[in-house]
Amino acid sequence: MAEQILGIRGLDVAAKGVPILRAVDLEIGAGEVHVLFGPNGSGKSTLLSAIMGLPPYVVSAGEIRLGGERIDGLAIDERARRGIGMAFQRPPAIDGVTVEDFSQTLGSADILHREAASLDLADFAARHINVGFSGGEVKRWEVFKLFLQDPRLLLFDEPESGVDLEHISAVGDAINRLMRTPNRAGEARSALIITHTGFILDYIEADVGHVMIDGHIVRSGEPRALFESIQKHGYKTMQP
């Protein structure tokens, strides 16, 4: 296996005292793309949120390591500065804060103008973040945000949901381009992608697939084979 970027062992996560994830183990190597399947409410988004450190999720057991360093006790921004970036499924609208303000604050205004056109976001600089964005615009912005941030580990929470077919390909291309481009430190990027529909598999090259049910990872393997099995038999045969 390639150098381990993300290492999760025995992870239990709860929200407001309610356990959601139990004994999750997951390893992602440098340059690898992993996809995570699972029915609604299985805990997929909770796993991404726990890696990112988002409230209200609390790690109650186990550990999360990034590049060997334990990060589950770090604040959100400290995790981000160590190289984790997340494309949200339903990000908040931030009235009054423009895309340009955001990129200037991150010190990446030059990237804004260079990369925006590739995601059909050239006219976005003056728009307020996620205010009045269509479903497709939200997804494209969330991917574009990762270009501005330049993380090493990319977390995508259902990047294709709410996007029309025409733009799924743009989102998929952008994810591929991000993956192919090393970060500014020259490190290969890795990704963990949640997909509910599996459409994104038509556009990206995934290395490993996982199935999460009831807060457990119940199966891992070749992603297309896993997805075909889910399409044919549903999640019933994969119960823990």
Partner: peptide
């Protein structure tokens, strides 16, 4: 909003920077 703070901080902004950006945006 805690959600907005978390969103901005997840891009690497410190808590202070994220708060400033939200306040300036709010004041329009």
């Amino acid at each position: 909003s805690e959600e907005k703070m978390a969103y901005l901080m997840s891009s690497g902004m410190s808590e202070d920077l994220a708060r400033d950006l939200i306040v300036e945006g709010f004041l329009n």
